[in-house]
Design a binder for these strands. Sequence first.
DNA 1: CCAAAAACATGATTAATATCATTTCTTATA
DNA 2: TATAAGAAATGATATTAATCATGTTTTTGG
Lengths: 237, 237
Amino acid sequence: MKTKPDFHADCVTCKVRDKSMFCRLHKTELLQFDGSKSCYFFRKGEVIFHENGHPRGVFCISSGKIKVSHTGYDGKEQIVRMAKEGDLLGYRAFLSNQQYNGTATALTDVEICFIPGEVFFEVLRGNNNFSLQMMHLLSSELGKAERTITDLAQKPVRERMAEALLFLKGTYGLEPDNATINIVLSREDIANMIGTATETAIRLLSEFRHNRILSFEGKKIKIEDFPRLVRTANIPD
Amino acid sequence: MKTKPDFHADCVTCKVRDKSMFCRLHKTELLQFDGSKSCYFFRKGEVIFHENGHPRGVFCISSGKIKVSHTGYDGKEQIVRMAKEGDLLGYRAFLSNQQYNGTATALTDVEICFIPGEVFFEVLRGNNNFSLQMMHLLSSELGKAERTITDLAQKPVRERMAEALLFLKGTYGLEPDNATINIVLSREDIANMIGTATETAIRLLSEFRHNRILSFEGKKIKIEDFPRLVRTANIPD
DNA sequence: CCAAAAACATGATTAATATCATTTCTTATA
DNA sequence: TATAAGAAATGATATTAATCATGTTTTTGG
C-alpha cells in the first residue's frame, strides 16, 4: 500500500459521490471529510485491511473492486462481500466496535479514501438523516446476509452458482456488449463466494458453457442465455 | 393473537428494560412509547409477523421465546434468528423499509409490545445515542450473520450442531442445575437452525448422547461434557 | 381415556459434492 | 523467450449427508 501523490480525491467534487452513502451530505460535512481523510492506492492483490485488525475509521472506494473474505480455521476462504467504487468499507466493524471480521483484498487496482473514526462519528452525530441512512444500509445488508444463509443451507451448488453470476451482473454490471459481466475473478474466488470446492465451481462453469448459458473470453464471463441462467438460479417468486 | 387485558407492560417500570435496547432512553422517550404502544399475547406456535408482511413498527419482547425463519421455495424452513425477552423484533425490515424477510413464531407463550413506526422513528431522530446504539446492534447482527455464512459453507454438520448448542446455551442460558439448556425445541427446529435434515439432527444428538456429551430429560438438553462439546464445535481462536 | 397425529428414532440406499490425482493451459518473470 | 509458477480442466474415488422407509414413542384433542 502507498499514498499515490497524484490521487487527490475530493469529496465535494468526487465523481462517485452521487452513487455513494455520502450523496446527501451537506457541503460542510464533505469538507470535514476532506480536511481529515487520507487517500491510498492499492495494487491488485494487496490487502486493505486484515481480519482481526482494529478499525480506526471507514473507507470509501473511489475506484476499483474489492472482496471481503473470512478465513476458516482450515485456511479455506469464504467471501462475504463484494464491493466497488462508491461503496463504504469497514463500517460494520467500526460501528460495532469490533475487530475486522474479514480481510479486504483489492481485486483490481484500487483508489480509496480513509475517513478517521472521530470525524465519521462527528458527522453521524450531527446528521440524523445520515444515521438513518446508515441504519438502512446495515439492515439491507443484514437482510441479504440472512438470505445468503438460507441459500447456503437449502440450495444445491448449481443454483447458487447461477445466483452468484446474477449477483455479479447486478453488482458490477455488464460491458458495452450488454452480456459480459464486468469483473474478472479466478475460479477459486467464484468457488469461495458460493461456498464450494474450486473443482466443483470449474465443473459447473464448464457445464454452463456446454449448455450455452455462458461463454468465456479469457477470464471474462459472457451471459449467452440470460433467461435460462435465471431459471437455473431457481429464484423464488 | 389477542390483546390480553391483564398484560399492561409499562416501559418505565418494565422488568426487562435494563436488558434491552431501551435501557438508556430518557423517561420522556419511554413515556412516548407507553403512550402509543399496544401489548399482545401470543400462545406457543402462533405467528407474530409473516414473511412478506409490511412492518408498521417495532416489537419489544416482554416475555417468551421466538424464532424467525425463512421459507425456502421448496417449503423447507431456515431459522435465521432466535429471540428472547428484552430483544427487539422486526427492526431490520422496518429500518430497511422492506417487507419482512422471515416469519416470527412464538416458541413459548409470548408477551410482546408493539411500538408504532412513527413513534420509534421520532425517538430515533431525537436521540442520536439511541441511533448509534441501533447501528451497533445492526452491525453486530451483521457480523454474526456473516460468520454463520462461513460456518455453513465450511463446517460439517457435526460441528455446526455442537456450535448451535453452545449458541443456545449462550442465548437462553442454563437452568438452576447449571447444565440444562433453558429452551425447548423440536428436533426439526434444531435441524432448521443448522441447515440440515431432521433425521441428521436426530442422529447427531443421539451420537452426542452415546458419547456422553449430552443427556436428555424429555425435550430438555443437558450438557454433560462441556469441554468436549466445545472441542466438537471446533471453534477457531 | 382413547384415537389420531405428530415427533422421534434408526436402518438402508442414493445423491451430491469433496478430495485426490493428473494434465493442459496461461501468465509472470528471470 | 525460456522457464517456472499458478490457474484451469477433467477423471476417479471417497465421503458426507439427504432421502426413503418403517417402527416407536409422545403429545394432543375429542
